[in-house]
Design a binder for these strands. Structure first.
Length: 293
DNA sequence: GGTAGACCTGGACGC
DNA sequence: GCGTCCAGGTCTACC
């Protein structure tokens, strides 16, 4: 089954999926040299489907091999809409970028949208798994969670969906540590899963929250394992760009851009982007850095 | 509010 | 092959 979803223009499918590293984390998967990506999703009906996504005139083409009823098709469309931010308006950001040579590629790439997971719970888990480890470690931990605990499309299929809060809550902290190799992060993921599965914490409501960014930041920081960097990253995913996710890479880039490679702290990063106001997170994200690793 | 140390793993390096 | 060191954010205890 194939259909198309329209995006607010300008829109570049390639730009969204390459906006950060999420595309390399399961259950996203793709073949090298292919313009098409896949995401293995678990639907509310507990059916597991592989969703194919590719550039299409005016938006994105969606493909699912399984037969779908009307409700399932609508659910997939809603998920894809959120994942790619199809209706988001970046005209103000693009106007700002027009006046800054270091943001030239923002206009060339129609950049601004950031790839996200269908459930914010998944984005939170993945963000916690990016902390205090290298990218290879993050990929390994996420793959372990998906392959060990996620539902499969069929017994013969190699692709699993991301496990639900209920599934992860049932695993237990010790197994997350020993089997999924999450290390000290295991109790954080376990606690979050329990809170969400029991209904005590509804993280999905943050997607459409009217809270001020400072209050939303406070809520995110209440989640164990979410510190300053992780909260800023999650705010970016929620479409709030007032914060900069300052990690070691950010310190290195800013240091080489303006401080001759001298050691700096988060306050220097903040100061350099302060003038960009509510867009500074995106400005930082898409800045054309002079220093190349 | 600021700071130090612990947390865990994989990779790099020296022997 | 083995041992040691280091990088990577967050939490907690302490000042």
């Amino acid at each position: 089954m194939k259909w198309c979803l329209t995006a607010r223009q300008p829109f570049s499918f390639k730009s969204v999926i390459r906006s950060h590293g999420w595309i390399d984390l399961a259950p996203f998967h793709y073949e090298n040299n292919s313009e098409k990506i896949w995401y293995t999703a678990s639907l509310e009906s507990e059916k597991v489907v592989d969703i194919g996504l590719e550039e299409a005139p005016g938006g994105v083409g969606v493909e699912v091999s399984n037969p779908l009823n009307k409700t399932e098709k609508a659910e997939i469309s809603t998920k894809v809409d959120w994942m790619l931010g199809l209706d988001r308006d970046f005209s103000t950001f693009h106007d700002l970028a027009r006046a800054e040579p270091k943001l030239k590629r923002v206009l060339e790439m129609s950049a601004g949208r950031i790839l996200r997971c269908p459930m914010f719970f998944e984005d939170i888990v993945k963000t916690i798994l990016t902390t205090n480890t290298q990218w290879g470690g993050t990929k390994r931990m996420v793959a372990n969670l998906v392959n060990l605990y996620g539902r499969v499309i069929s017994e013969e299929d190699q692709y699993h969906a991301f496990p639900s809060p209920k599934q992860l809550a049932a695993v237990g902290s010790d197994d997350l540590r020993s089997d999924a190799k999450l290390g000290y992060r295991a109790p954080y993921i376990s606690e979050l899963s329990h809170l969400v599965a029991s209904g005590e914490l509804d993280v999905e409501k943050y997607k459409k929250s009217n809270l001020r960014t400072s209050d939303l930041r406070k809520k995110l920081r209440e989640i164990k394992g979410v510190g300053g960097y992780a909260a800023a990253n999650l705010l970016m995913i929620l479409g709030r760009y007032d914060d900069i996710p300052v990690d070691s890479w950010a310190l290195k880039m800013v240091s080489h851009e303006w401080f001759n490679g001298e050691p700096i702290g988060p306050s220097e990063v903040e100061a350099k982007f302060k003038t960009w106001g509510e867009w500074k997170g995106l400005v930082f994200w898409f800045w054309n850095w002079s220093f190349k690793e």
